[in-house]
Simulated assay, not measured.
Amino acid sequence: MKLTLIAILCLVATLYVSIGSAHHPCFHHPENVSCTDFTYAPVNCTNDLDTLCLNLTNVNYTACSIYKSCQSANASSGVCEPFSILADACQVDHMGNITAKGCKNYDGMCAPGSVVQQCTNMPPISYLITTLNASAEVIDMCNEMDMDDCAKCPFATSSTSVPMPCDVYLVYMRLCASMPTMKQCRPYKFMCDGILPLPKSAIGSVYCPYVTSNTTAVATTTSAPTTTSTSTTGTTSTTGTTSTTSTSSTTSTTGSSPTTSTSTTSTTTATPTTSTTSTTTASPSTTTTTTNHPSTGSISTPHQAVSMFLVLLVLLLLIIQ
């Protein structure tokens, strides 16, 4: 009996904490200065994405395509950060209008006037096309030209007013990757610009297969060795890789018997001067930011107190037993 009571109390504590996270003040008043450092935990974002994308009606939405690709790539940073994917779903595709529960917390904390930094620091993918627009573009492109990827969507029997029952975002990106000059591919060109996050991400090869990141060419100029010649009393001094030849010729004439000293030629090979360029790579400075316990979307303070009380109660029952 006591063990059953303990199990029930533990379950109640867990449920109480979970429910409490949904009532955090920053979901309702994100304009408060105290919400600046509020953070919606990744596990909560993942739960919301599961709520949105495990629904058969939503599984083919753009954000769900990205979510699935990130899971396959085992990636969870950059465009695959759960909060960023949630932004794709709720801010770009407005999936909260379809499944309100999945976007309720995001729409609350990132509402207009919000000061929550997470909403700014983890935005949706730049120039992301909505599911409905991607579907309409695929229908238009496939009716205009027959391409292999068109077979993945029922474009011939679909309306442009509702998304097709297929991964329209992936199909749209693949069609434009093969035919980027088509007029419907302007959003694709923006999304897959080499300097933006998507093509450089872990899922870049899925959606932007032929795009490489822009690189800056660094021109290396090799200068010829500098030769300095100083003429001092028949001596030629060459610095660099040029041999130095010192020739001294003396003719002395005394009286009628000319005395000619032997001409001595001294060839000295100078050691080439090697110019050493010392490149010092500064160690990147590490900035340590100390955040004074930012509030998170997992547990709020009053619920922590209640949970602690329940845990102590469980321990007391164990002692009594």
Rank of each mutant, 00 (worst) to 15 (best):
L170F: 11
L170D: 03
L170H: 11
L170A: 08
V171G: 00
V171K: 00
Y172L: 02
Y172K: 01
M173K: 06
M173A: 10
R174F: 00
R174V: 02
L175E: 02
L175C: 05
L175P: 05
L175T: 03
C176Y: 09
C176P: 11
C176D: 03
A177P: 07
A177F: 06
S178L: 04
S178D: 10
M179V: 06
M179Y: 10
P180G: 08
P180C: 07
P180D: 05
P180N: 07
P180I: 09
T181G: 15
M182H: 13
M182S: 10
M182G: 06
K183Y: 15
Q184L: 11
Q184C: 07
Q184I: 08
Q184Y: 14
C185V: 14
C185L: 15
R186H: 11
R186C: 01
P187R: 05
P187Y: 07
Y188W: 14
K189L: 06
K189M: 03
K189D: 02
F190Y: 12
F190P: 04
M191C: 00
M191V: 00
M191H: 04
C192H: 01
C192N: 01
C192T: 01
D193Y: 15
G194K: 08
G194W: 14
G194H: 10
I195K: 13
I195M: 07
I195W: 07
I195R: 12
L196Y: 15
L196S: 05
P197K: 04
L198C: 05
L198N: 01
P199H: 11
K200S: 15
K200R: 12
K200V: 14
K200A: 15
S201K: 02
S201D: 02
S201C: 13
S201Q: 11
S201Y: 02
A202C: 04
A202F: 06
A202Q: 13
I203T: 10
G204N: 15
G204K: 13
G204F: 15
S205T: 06
S205E: 09
S205Q: 09
S205D: 09
S205F: 13
V206T: 12
V206R: 14
V206H: 12
V206C: 05
V206F: 07
Y207W: 09
Y207I: 01
Y207Q: 02
C208H: 11
C208F: 15
P209C: 03
P209F: 06
Y210Q: 13
Y210V: 10
Y210A: 07
V211E: 11
T212C: 12
S213N: 13
S213M: 15
N214Y: 04
N214G: 00
N214L: 01
T215H: 11
T215W: 06
T215Q: 11
T216D: 03
T216W: 01
T216N: 04
A217D: 14
A217K: 12
A217Y: 02
V218G: 09
V218M: 07
V218C: 09
